[in-house]
Design a protein around this nucleic acid. Sequence first.
DNA 1: TAAAAATACTCCATAGGTATTTTAT
DNA 2: ATAAAATACCTATGGAGTATTTTTA
Lengths: 297, 297
Amino acid sequence: MTLTELRYLVTLATERHFGKAAERCHVSQPTLSVAIRKLEDSLGLTLFERHRHGVLVTPAGADIIAQAKVVLQETDVLERMARHSRDEFAEPLRLGAIFTIGPFLFPALISQLRQERSPLKLYLEEDYTHVLDERLAQGELDAILVAMPFEPPETRITPLFNEPFHLLLPADHPWREQDVIRADALENHPVLMLGEGNCFRDQVLETCHLGNQGNQRTGSSLTTLRHMVASGLGMTLIPAMAVPALVNDDVVLKPLQPHPGRCVVLASRHRFPRKAALAELTRALQTLQLPGCVPAP
Amino acid sequence: MTLTELRYLVTLATERHFGKAAERCHVSQPTLSVAIRKLEDSLGLTLFERHRHGVLVTPAGADIIAQAKVVLQETDVLERMARHSRDEFAEPLRLGAIFTIGPFLFPALISQLRQERSPLKLYLEEDYTHVLDERLAQGELDAILVAMPFEPPETRITPLFNEPFHLLLPADHPWREQDVIRADALENHPVLMLGEGNCFRDQVLETCHLGNQGNQRTGSSLTTLRHMVASGLGMTLIPAMAVPALVNDDVVLKPLQPHPGRCVVLASRHRFPRKAALAELTRALQTLQLPGCVPAP
DNA sequence: TAAAAATACTCCATAGGTATTTTAT
DNA sequence: ATAAAATACCTATGGAGTATTTTTA
């Protein structure tokens, strides 16, 4: 049984004449004749009674024909679905980002896309790097925003920008008058950190040469840390893109010397097929003007 | 797009490995590879991301695969329907009969079939010859019981039996003592007839050489005529098979000389495909012992 | 390096064509 | 006699095979 045979079947059932049905199927009469016979043989029953003046549908044939219409209907649905999916921008791209990027980059990205009337739609998620990596590999996300180092296999990395970390002090902190703080001055000071699993924590520890002292207080998000800083509990580092959202009168922002920071990249699977949609996302990300961030070369 | 391709598609989606999917489809890996590629090309989109360790289904692919399953499901339904219809006795045979046969033959036929535990099931109708003929030609009935003459094209006629007509008199009629009535004696007597359109009416008029006198009273069924005879309104003729149902104390039955009568036949379309079911019906009809009826040669 | 998919090629089944015959009215 | 479907026969597409290459993790 083939879909072509079913199409012939349905046409013959409506035309009730081999010649006319063949014409409507754009094939010769013998072609249609043979196909119908073959179908009847394979099903093991007679679908049509052939008479001098047209053909008659048998009751069994009528049932089969109705079901053949259903099959053809469903293949039609399939083809329409394919036609819809052929538009790369029809479905949203699924984008993930780590907790220290998403809340600060997503708003800018979305407003950028809307302003440009971009056809790209985004489904957004925030999570830890290892979860995003896993979901990317499983095909549950199409692209993720993470910080280097990040080198899993089968993954294409597009560097987006280098982003410095800044120091956040309580408004009444003794260092509030200094223009620049030396990074190594942070040692033995109470630096509030994110919990284990946040790559930002690791980057801060590494780039500022802070040993994992164990007695550091931790917070579950940069916003939480910021509030703890404001309350005078200690100091913390925040990435540059978070500055507008986190800095207010009750905290003081200071640049660090030398510049600790991170490289933010977009990662996607090598074989991901929606190249155009991914290119549009990459372009939009590279166009973003995020505070303190320098486009990667 | 072919059903085979859809089968490969669904198998690959579950196996997520070309080699294993090919094995489950009983084809070689290149065959499956080429078929999937061809399907992707024809749909104009990538359904699978090929990776070193298995393939990944794209979101568009997931939708298409779900729909492919629906299509295959429906073809499966079609094949099951065919398998069911392959049993000639699964569906009832649609049998029609004229008004002067159905009510007297159907009960005997049904009880005969039930007694024999025959697998044949019957859908029954009664109507005029010309309606039955039309419905037979349209394929709305599979076989009809009518009386000769009946010679429409594309129709196979199987003579069943010759059936005499008998005379029905009021219980107090002067002829009640005679053994036999001469058919030509009926002229100028009040013979009650069925209305126009009943072939039995025409047969009575012809075989008894009664002119269509116009002043004959008519009834809508043999049962009605019988009641009119019983009430003394006149006499009438009835076919032999109707005798048990119609003759009682208040009427008298007399044979006629020479024997007027009719030949009852089974008619079906030449090309009707359910030969076995039709043969079973014919056999059952020929086995019937109907009062006064002589099997046709 | 090795596993997996893609490619190259060969073969044959079959869908489709044209010409003709059979069939039943 | 004629219209319609079936049959015969031919061709070419493409589905499926084996052998091999390419890819990339």
